[in-house]
């Protein structure tokens, strides 16, 4: 194998990071406009039914909600680019304190899930391609497609009913906290992890299978077959590396989903992740928190997409050496 041309990739990465920053800025504007467009403001949302005109007024004044929107946006942006995320309007805690440990929790759950789901999905995909159209292939397809077709909360409740209520093996709520060590945390998040793994496996597995099967119809595979190579070797050594690019893209998308899209699983298992924070902050119109979590989510997508592209290029000699 020849060495990838790092310069080219570094240039590409830099360019993409630059574009990513522009994307993030646009998203911050969209988030701000979106939250502003929602009816009511923080004062009304927090006080709810117990709001009176005077208390709402006092709230607005203290939190400077009575200033025009563009002034508030630019004062937020000014602080943000200096690295100051501001304080939550609702409970006056620094946004960083609200987000950092939750984001770590989200990454922890996503990481553990990915560690299980990605190898399993890829392996199953390869096997399904290897034994294409056999009973085995159909069984895997059916099983994984069933788990992805059920809503997440349904899978979650079934798992709780089976593994936590019927047979008491795993805890039904995954409320991890600092008093737990790593292994206790791992044990606590077993069920949410399994739920998410079941949900994301199908997508990656189907993509792996389809990509490999697609490659299997190429002339060079026919050549390999004609040489008399074993089928396993053909699939793993010849077809799989060429199928990596689409597989990597799907894995990246699923990883991003694991970080940002698991709010329902968080609610069912009472897992303190970033999703719940975002939902609460939107419903309370707590703009600094919404901005920060929204931007983290956006950045996750941008970075994972970038990573997927870089890896695709690295794994593909044709892209590595463009003519």
């Amino acid at each position: 194998m020849e060495l990838p041309k790092l310069n080219g990739i570094a240039a590409l990465a830099l360019k993409r990071i630059g574009l990513g920053l522009v994307t993030l800025w646009v998203i911050s504007v969209l988030i701000f406009v979106g939250v502003e467009a929602l009816p009511g403001d923080l004062a009304e949302a927090v006080l709810g039914q117990s709001a009176t005109p005077e208390t709402v007024e006092a709230f607005r004044k203290e939190l400077k909600l009575d200033m025009p929107p563009h002034v508030r946006y630019f004062s937020w942006l000014g602080a943000f680019v200096k690295g100051d995320f501001g304080n939550s309007l609702a409970n006056n805690r620094p946004v960083v304190d609200l987000i950092n440990w939750r984001f770590a929790n989200s990454l922890f759950l996503a990481g553990v899930t990915a560690m299980i789901a990605v190898p399993v999905a890829v392996l199953l995909g390869i096997l399904a391609a290897l034994y294409r159209n056999t009973l085995f292939d159909r069984l895997i397809s059916m099983a994984t497609l069933s788990t992805i077709s059920f809503p997440e909360f349904f899978v979650a409740y079934i798992l709780i009913a089976l593994l936590s209520v019927q047979v008491v093996i795993f805890p039904s709520i995954a409320n991890i906290n600092d008093q737990m060590n790593f292994w206790q945390k791992l044990y606590a998040i077993f069920l949410p992890c399994l739920t998410l793994a079941m949900v994301v496996t199908a997508h990656m597995m189907r993509q792996t299978r389809a990509a490999i099967i697609n490659i299997l119809s190429s002339p060079f595979i026919e050549m390999a077959n004609l040489k008399g190579l074993r089928r396993l070797r053909v699939v793993v050594r010849h077809a799989f590396p060429n199928a990596l690019s689409p597989v990597i893209n799907v894995i990246a998308l699923n990883l991003a989903y694991l970080v940002v899209g698991v709010v329902i699983v968080e609610v069912v298992f009472v897992y303190p992740g970033l999703g719940q924070l975002l939902v609460d902050s939107v419903s309370k119109r707590d703009i600094p928190v919404v901005q920060a979590s929204g931007l983290i989510f956006a950045a996750t997508y941008v970075l994972l997409n970038l990573l997927a592209d870089v890896l695709s290029i690295v794994s593909n000699p044709r892209l590595r050496n463009p003519r």
Partner: peptide, 19 residues
């Protein structure tokens, strides 16, 4: 005190002795 907004999660947690 744990915040558990989902009623099924609360019920399961009580059933399994977590609260």
């Amino acid at each position: 005190i744990l915040g558990i907004n989902d009623v099924n999660a609360r019920t399961n947690a009580l059933k399994t002795g977590q609260i």
